[in-house]
Design a protein around this nucleic acid. Structure first.
Lengths: 240, 240, 240, 240
DNA sequence: CATGAATGAGAGTTCATTCAT
DNA sequence: AATGAATGAACTCTCATTCAT
């Protein structure tokens, strides 16, 4: 399984529910969800709608998606949509809810030396970036929606905050151990460095797909660069 | 005036026209622009429309803005809009064009010791963040539009690239002088660190306005944190 | 039934599908047609729209007809129009398509002596003119639209050509049998004489309705005049 | 000059003013014409507008022409239009008025034997078709406008009637001289045959320009065909 | 007279949502 | 539960005509 992350708790290696031991933000904004379908047939239709919605959202973007595009893709009537969702936002919430699992549990893999902060950091970054890449389209979608629907902006912020707080704790711990620069506020540093990684991920995997010029550099180079800069920024000792 | 920035060229301290000595990206995407007004009255109306557009865009967001909201704000007839602009995109382009000056020439102010890379970096960051704060609503608008109109996404990317290339040159130079870590690719590092600063700015000045929790920390703390992390990340020597 | 018209093939006595044995032009230009309605109710609404469109077109002319005039006449909402048609052109196409049957199969009736070219010609002209009169308003509409929409101009031309070619064959056959003047090119003669008849029909039934001066002469006189002139023009033998 | 057309008065060889000795229809519908310009400058502007209108009408069609297209072409301000014309119809009237001269006086040229009805007819047809060809675009324009503006439909009808009556007189005379079939009513025959020629002209010179397939046959063939058919239709004696 | 900006009624079109079947 | 047609508010855009300069 995963190495003992309690020693050097780092970035998004676990689900948000556990982060900071606080009540984690729900993956999707709470909305007055409709009654879950009671019959098998209903469940099937609902699932088809969610799957279709994800496909269409990722293909056309949130704004350009019409409800009928979704029902058409799901091979059901326009009216059926309203049996399960009140509006576009709600399907999107359902889509995100379904993707939550994979997006939040990157699965960091083994780390040889769990006591080596640099190794842990690198593994954590790699896991994060891999998860981002896997769900790139959805992440791009989330960015778009956050610009448009306050509910989802709110949600995105809470999610980011959770990660930031978590990383801040990691930084604070390293500072306590004398391994990290004590001259910076852990929260501020975490905001900056977590932000740095997520911007890189966004540029590489969301924008990179669309442009030819700004193609993502080699994945490993991406991992090593952000890791090195992060480690340097905190003045990890004895490095190169 | 400003210290000799040729020695330590840094972030967005100058207009994009000068960046890299290349042809800089226009602040706003050129579209088939209408004839500029020939009379005084025409100029007045056009200006009123641009001003109204900025106000309404910043208040309601790009998408929720109706053309009639703009003309109403400008106190002119709906049809008059089309005398000067072909559509919503074009007014926005005009709005950005007008803001360009202030957004691109942060005006770095005096720096005590132009040979001290740290001091230069800090001044540059401060200037950038001040400009961002001054135009926060517009920057937020740009982020929104970039998610929605490919033209503006393109534009934002080109603009970011210009800054990134410029900072990359600064990094490369410091590496050559032995002042910066040679273990990272200048472009990659620039992408990461420039991104770090802009995310911080976005969170502080665009999102910060809207939320209560994530309020922007003290401005000076923001400046010093990103500067310190940036300097550390590149392993500026002799710091603490 | 109809006399053996293979002997003296003549004017528009049959549907265009059979004309020249070639693929006949469709009565109305095909455009990206919408899905035909699947339910009874849908079929009813669509039919109501087509009927309303014909009525309004004939009353107000193509150009002066607003889409809402049609939906109002059909007693349905403005938006419903787009369930079945993409635009005004498309309803018109549907209107023409529905009228096609009657307009293209004049139903020539019996002819005493099918071997008498003059009798056949006269019957053919009468059938043509009767059909024209029956659909006078629609023919006038078509003339108007042809001046305005290239698609329909094209369509009208193809339709006319089909008749012209057919009549040209009839003329050529009579020339071969020594019954018609060999000094004229069959196609040219057909163009001229077919045109002559259609102009007369247009003037009598389309313009005649509107004016008082140029009232259509007695219908029978019309038939006999064009027939006689046509027969003379080709020098049918032994006449008077 | 022109041969003595009083002997065999034929088709449109003279201006409509003289036709039938009746009060001829004005080339353009009477409208409340504005005061003619008093200054030289005014006359120049007006002339420029008329010339521009003709060019634009012929290029874009009556309906697709916007008033500003005309003023732009005339290099004057939009408002200036209303100094001379009340609306689009009025400029068109002015355009037609100016073209009247050339369109109505085909200039038949010499005819060897003015007593030979066939020769006269042929010369007349040639002159008519040449004039039609010279003014093809304008004739096409007139057809279009007639479908759209009742005033011009009216005008076109009156103009056609004048020719028809004139040709009818010619036919009646030949009937009296025993040269033409007495079995047809002169007016009816004239309607049919005059219509035949004008349709041929329209197809050849107006539609022919636009299509590649239906190109006008050789001009001389056109002349000889309609002449022959016309002569045959009236049973001119002793022909071939 | 010329100018060219201002006007505003009116047309076409979209699509979330409802509802009878 | 499913269907798919019906609805109508909302929005953009055009252009003849007016009018202050």
């Amino acid at each position: 399984m995963v190495s003992d992350s309690s020693k050097v708790p780092w970035m998004e290696t676990t689900g948000p529910e556990e982060i900071d031991g606080e009540q984690a933000p729900p993956m999707a904004p709470r909305s007055q969800l409709r009654e879950p379908p009671t019959t098998k047939r209903g469940a099937r239709t609902r699932a088809a709608l969610v799957q279709a919605a994800r496909k269409v959202f990722e293909r056309d973007g949130y704004l350009d998606t019409r409800l009928t595009d979704i029902t058409k893709e799901a091979r059901c009537a326009a009216g059926s949509f309203y049996t399960y969702f009140a509006n576009k936002e709600e399907v999107l919430a359902a889509v995100l809810l379904e993707a939550q699992e994979d997006m939040m549990h990157p699965g960091m893999g083994r780390v040889q030396d769990a006591d080596d902060p640099y190794a842990v950091l690198e593994a954590s970054n790699r896991a994060y970036l891999e998860a981002y890449r896997r769900n790139a389209k959805l992440m791009g979608l989330l960015e778009q929606v956050a610009q448009v629907e306050p509910e989802f902006r709110e949600f995105r912020s809470r999610r980011a905050d959770a990660f930031i707080r978590r990383n801040a704790r990691g930084i604070a711990e390293l500072q306590a151990r004398g391994v990290a620069d004590r001259g910076v506020d852990p929260m501020m540093a975490s905001r900056a460095l977590s932000g740095m990684v997520s911007v890189m991920a966004y540029n590489a995997f969301v924008l990179g797909e669309r442009q030819e010029g700004g193609t993502p550099a080699d994945f490993e180079e991406l991992v090593s660069t952000v890791t090195r800069l992060w480690a340097n920024a905190l003045r990890f000792p004895g490095h190169r």
